[in-house]
């Protein structure tokens, strides 16, 4: 199943199939049988609450997890026509920061405080390409200008603590994009920022993506950001993708009770102000994940059939869902 077969004219630039990961010592998997495709110039948003395994997925795909602590039990990654095992991702050092780049959530902790930001950006060039440092510096300066940092020559010699949060995130973006990556993984790039700065960063990512046609995997919990950026959405719960499809179908015709609950608990800026609907309870941790459907412990429709794992079904044009009762309006009714 692919998350975005509606644009099958294009070939996915990055595909993941059947990715399963487990933290050493745990009894069950933290990420289970994830599969999705990323297409050039498109954005796949992975949405979910904290603890659903979205960040560990990103780190796993980048090969940034220590193999002795997190076991990749299955899964293959197909990237630019080459196929390799997800378990070997940590060996793909030549790809990281070159063809495959990542932006992290907290720009202060992911920049080295004791190096000038310009040097940190230029390092990405000198690591992957032969050439002089002078050339790398030239490229870094051009990149700083491209991400909208005023006075790149002056800023080049500054340290991370001299920049504001928004500026630091721009530096992270410059560093990730300097080698023209084919795929960018962004892990909550705007969560730590103010709304006005968030709007600027989102515009910037959109614009750069349009110019370079890179595929983007955006990880977020903010449905507003998803509606603005995504072409495709995958909703994660408890380490599984419970629903995926084009962004319009997810927002306008959601199928899974979790997606419906998530959308009804979002406060709105316009329209009638009514009491928020919630999802009862909290996300269970990996040890106490219910058997069968992992959402069953919080689902108002849970019944005996939910003790078995629901199959992923395609319901409508690339829109697929893992729920026994989908679509709810056709299978369920209120008892009198």
């Amino acid at each position: 199943m692919s998350a975005a077969t509606h644009c099958n004219k294009d070939i996915p630039i990055f595909s993941v199939s059947d990715l399963t990961m487990r933290i050493a010592g745990d009894a069950s998997d933290i990420v289970e049988r994830l599969s999705f495709d990323v297409f050039p110039g498109k954005t796949l948003c992975i949405v979910g609450e904290s603890g659903c395994g979205k960040s560990i997925t990103a780190l796993g795909l980048m090969g940034l997890l220590p193999p002795q602590e997190v076991a990749v039990r299955s899964g293959t990654i197909r990237f630019e026509g080459k196929e390799y095992l997800a378990a070997e991702a940590h060996q793909a050092r030549h790809l990281r920061g070159d063809r495959l780049a990542m932006i992290f959530q907290e720009p202060m902790t992911s920049l080295n405080p004791s190096y000038k930001i310009g040097v940190q950006i230029a390092e990405a060039v000198t690591c992957h390409h032969s050439g002089s440092y002078v050339d790398a510096k030239k490229q870094a300066l051009a990149m700083l200008a491209k991400v909208g940092i005023p006075g790149p020559e002056l800023r080049y010699d500054e340290y991370p603590h001299q920049l504001s949060g928004g500026m630091r995130q721009r530096v992270m973006i410059a560093m990730a994009l300097i080698n023209n990556p084919a795929v960018l993984i962004a892990d909550e790039p705007t969560t730590a920022l103010d709304v006005t700065i968030q709007a600027q960063i989102i515009e910037l990512i959109c614009e750069l993506q349009k110019n370079t046609q890179m595929g983007t995997i955006m990880i977020t919990h903010d449905l507003g950001v998803v509606a603005k950026l995504a072409t495709d959405v995958a909703v994660m719960y408890g380490g599984q993708i419970v629903e995926s499809g084009p962004v319009a179908s997810i927002f306008n015709a959601p199928q899974h009770p979790y997606t419906i609950g998530l959308l009804s608990s979002m406060p709105n800026l316009s329209g009638y102000k009514e009491r928020l609907f919630t999802i009862p309870g909290t996300v269970p941790n990996v040890q106490s994940m219910p058997k069968g459907c992992r959402f069953s412990s919080r689902c108002p429709f849970c019944s005996s059939v939910c003790k078995t794992q629901p199959e992923v079904r395609v319901v409508d044009d690339a829109h697929s869902v893992a729920c026994h009762f989908a679509p709810l309006d056709q299978t369920l009714e209120l008892s009198a």
Binding site: Q255, F301, T331, L332
Partner: peptide, 26 residues
């Protein structure tokens, strides 16, 4: 932009949260 069927899903969800029981149609 939601169709009536989709609205039904939201209403079902909200009713179920309020303790009403949803049963399979078939």
């Amino acid at each position: 932009t939601r169709s009536p069927q989709v609205e039904t899903r939201f209403q079902l969800y909200q009713a179920a949260l309020h303790g009403k029981k949803a049963v399979p149609k078939h």
